[in-house]
Design a protein around this nucleic acid. Sequence first.
DNA 1: GTACGTGCAAAGGATTTGCAAGCGG
DNA 2: CCGCTTGCAAATCCTTTGCACGTAC
Lengths: 147, 147
Amino acid sequence: MSENRLQKAIVALKESGVRITPQRHAVLDYLMNSVIHPTADDIYKALEGKFPNMSVATVYNNLRVLRENGLVRELTYGDSSSRFEINLTDHYHIICESCGKIVDFHYPSLDEVESLAAKVTGFEVSHHRMEVYGTCEECKQQKGHKH
Amino acid sequence: MSENRLQKAIVALKESGVRITPQRHAVLDYLMNSVIHPTADDIYKALEGKFPNMSVATVYNNLRVLRENGLVRELTYGDSSSRFEINLTDHYHIICESCGKIVDFHYPSLDEVESLAAKVTGFEVSHHRMEVYGTCEECKQQKGHKH
DNA sequence: GTACGTGCAAAGGATTTGCAAGCGG
DNA sequence: CCGCTTGCAAATCCTTTGCACGTAC
């Protein structure tokens, strides 16, 4: 089924006039099979085995194209570099402040917040983002070893 | 009353062993009277009249100290540079995707989301962030002028 | 007086850009 | 074939850092 998603994405890209180069295909494929919300550099490093001559700029270019076509979301947290993920159905992230791990969790979309915000500010709302921060189980355990 | 907040903040800083230099005072004062969620460079430009010799590094240093003491929050959105605001009681932001304007709005804290996230992921939750995106009234009107 | 803060310049890291050569459709 | 993409290097932008000097307390 992951194959299915990939094929659909490729068809959609072609219909938008975007060419499917081996590098672009590989970036998309990597993101579809990744759960770690990688940075551009993560992707670059993961693919340099298959594409020894690929440059980081190509990764950035492709991420931009994929983002512009709605296939990929860019996550900007406090740390230095952006992270990327396939744009799936609504879910949110919880982020470990100790090790940086990002875990998905499902929650009904916060439509009420959106409509209240629209009412009090006069904005026309398009979307929202939300993340929860905390400490993951592994890091909690490590803290426990202190004493 | 803004004076009052500033004095309280200064006392709190001194108690933490933080020195009140004229530059630090000015950064804090500027943030307390600002509604635009400025970048470090905004603050630098705003204060260069009063402090012609001040360097950007000083602004960054002070923002870090103020953040570490819980007085200031750093906001990292998609754009290149961080924005800063005084750490007030719970509120959220709505951001205009057209002109970048940031407007505060109040909403009860999303405690339910936090506790559900904790339950399903096993994390110990510390806090969350949420923003709504859309188009502000001014930019909506400008779009209306098209036809 | 002493440690912390400032100012300057340089370094660092992420991302973008310009351009010649390559290749997808 | 044409024009989008690639790869490379240089450029850009934001932020941090090292160090000598200054100053808050």
